[in-house]
Amino acid sequence: MPSPSPRAVLFSPSPLPVAPSASAAPDSLVAALRAAGCVFAEAEAELILAAAPTPDHVTGMVERRVRGLPLELVVGWAEFSGRRITVAPGVFVPRRRTEFLVTQALAQAPDAAVVVDLCCGSGAVGVALTAGLGTAELHAADIDPAAVRCARRNVADVGGLVHAGDLFEALPGTVRGRVDILAANVPYVPSDEIGLLPAEARDHEPRVALDGGADGLDVLRRVAAGAPDWLAPGGCLLMETTRRQAPAAAEAFTGAGLRTRLAVSEEEYAHVVICVRP
C-alpha cells in the first residue's frame, strides 16, 4: 500500500503545548476523549477547557473532537514556530514539520526584504518568516476564500497582505522580480492516495489543499514554471515534497533554470527543495 504524503499526516500526538494547571480536567471529559482514541486525553482536555469561551461551550467542543475534528480546529489555534496561529474549519492546519522549511529559508536568505507565501492556508509560513527576519514586505496568497479569510487574521500581526487568487495571478505586479523568499507549500498528495490519508485530514481539510494531481506534482510544476519571473536575482524558492517525489520535483525546478538542492530532516521527516535564481 502506498504511504500517504507526510504533508497530510496530522500531528500525533497533539503538538499544542499545555501549560501546567492547578486543577485537573473532569474525569468524564478525559474519559470521553480517551474513548475516542485521543492518546493524550488529559492534555487535550486541559486545552479545551482553556479555550472554551464559557463552561457551556466545553461539551460542544469535546463532541466535535470525539467526532474526529482536529484538536487545532476545536480550540481554534495551532502552534507554529513558537507562535499561536489562528486556524478555522475548512482551512489546512499547519504542520510542525513545515518549521524545517522556515529555518531553511531564513538560513538561505537571512536579509530577505520581500517574502511571498503561496498556497498560504492559515498564513503560518509567511508569518513565521517575517517574524524571523524582523521586518519584511510579506505577500501571502491562496485560491480558497476560507484560507484567505483565516490568513488575513494572522498576517495582520506582522503587517503583511493576503491576496485571493490562483498562485502568481493573485500577486500584485509590484513584487515581480523582487521576491527574495518564495515559500510555496503546495498540495502534493497524489489524487488516488487521498483516500489513504488519516481521517482528520481526509474528512476535515479542503481537498484543494491536499490534492496534487496524478503524481502529486501538478501544482509544483506550475510554480516552477512561473517562479523565475517573480524571484529577485539570488532569490530562493522553497517547497516541501516527499522522498519519493524529490527527484521529479528537482527536475522540474532545474528545467526552469533554477539551481536546486534538497534539504532533509530525518527527525521531522521533512524534505524541502531549495531553488535559487542565478
Rank of each mutant, 00 (worst) to 15 (best):
residue 176 R to D: 08
residue 152 R to Y: 05
residue 135 T to C: 14
residue 151 A to M: 11
residue 103 T to I: 00
residue 116 V to W: 09
residue 128 A to I: 06
residue 133 L to G: 08
residue 174 T to G: 13
residue 102 V to W: 02
residue 131 A to P: 03
residue 158 V to G: 09
residue 120 C to R: 06
residue 136 A to S: 12
residue 175 V to F: 04
residue 196 L to Y: 05
residue 104 Q to I: 00
residue 103 T to E: 14
residue 103 T to G: 04
residue 109 A to T: 00
residue 178 R to E: 09
residue 164 A to N: 00
residue 151 A to L: 07
residue 100 F to V: 14
residue 128 A to S: 02
residue 197 L to E: 12
residue 186 V to T: 12
residue 131 A to I: 02
residue 137 E to D: 14
residue 150 C to R: 12
residue 152 R to E: 08
residue 116 V to H: 11
residue 108 Q to P: 00
residue 105 A to I: 01
residue 125 V to A: 12
residue 142 D to M: 11
residue 157 D to C: 10
residue 131 A to S: 13
residue 119 C to Y: 01
residue 135 T to P: 09
residue 165 G to E: 07
residue 158 V to M: 13
residue 177 G to F: 04
residue 120 C to P: 04
residue 138 L to G: 12
residue 104 Q to A: 14
residue 158 V to I: 14
residue 168 F to N: 08
residue 139 H to C: 05
residue 131 A to E: 10
residue 124 A to Q: 08
residue 106 L to W: 05
residue 149 R to K: 15
residue 126 G to L: 08
residue 195 G to P: 06
residue 200 E to P: 03
residue 131 A to L: 12
residue 187 P to Q: 09
residue 153 R to P: 04
residue 152 R to S: 12
residue 129 L to E: 07
residue 127 V to T: 11
residue 192 D to Q: 14
residue 150 C to G: 12
residue 148 V to W: 08
residue 149 R to S: 15
residue 118 L to K: 02
residue 175 V to N: 09
residue 183 A to L: 12
residue 107 A to V: 03
residue 139 H to D: 00
residue 171 L to K: 06
residue 180 D to W: 10
residue 174 T to L: 01
residue 110 P to I: 05
residue 160 G to I: 05
residue 121 G to W: 02
residue 168 F to K: 00
residue 200 E to Q: 15
residue 159 G to H: 02
residue 123 G to R: 05
residue 191 S to K: 13
residue 171 L to C: 03
residue 134 G to H: 10
residue 151 A to K: 11
residue 143 I to L: 15
residue 160 G to R: 07
residue 97 R to C: 01
residue 163 H to A: 06
residue 181 I to G: 04
residue 105 A to W: 01
residue 118 L to Q: 04
residue 198 P to A: 09
residue 175 V to S: 04
residue 114 V to A: 03
residue 178 R to A: 08
residue 121 G to E: 00
residue 150 C to E: 09
residue 101 L to F: 06
residue 121 G to Q: 01
residue 188 Y to H: 15
residue 179 V to M: 10
residue 126 G to P: 06
residue 158 V to F: 13
residue 168 F to T: 00
residue 143 I to N: 14
residue 100 F to L: 07
residue 104 Q to Y: 10
residue 147 A to G: 07
residue 115 V to K: 05
residue 104 Q to W: 10
residue 146 A to S: 14
residue 194 I to L: 15
residue 159 G to V: 11
residue 187 P to T: 13
residue 115 V to G: 07
residue 157 D to M: 10
residue 134 G to W: 03
residue 195 G to F: 08
residue 124 A to D: 05
residue 156 A to F: 07
residue 182 L to D: 06
residue 167 L to F: 01
residue 99 E to C: 02
residue 122 S to T: 11
residue 185 N to Y: 07
residue 167 L to A: 13
residue 176 R to W: 02
residue 131 A to K: 06
residue 193 E to F: 06
residue 195 G to K: 13
residue 100 F to C: 03
residue 148 V to Y: 11
residue 118 L to E: 05
residue 179 V to D: 10
residue 147 A to F: 11
residue 177 G to L: 04
residue 141 A to T: 06
residue 120 C to I: 03
residue 105 A to T: 07
residue 118 L to V: 05
residue 165 G to Y: 08
residue 165 G to H: 12
residue 143 I to G: 08
residue 191 S to Q: 14
residue 157 D to E: 13
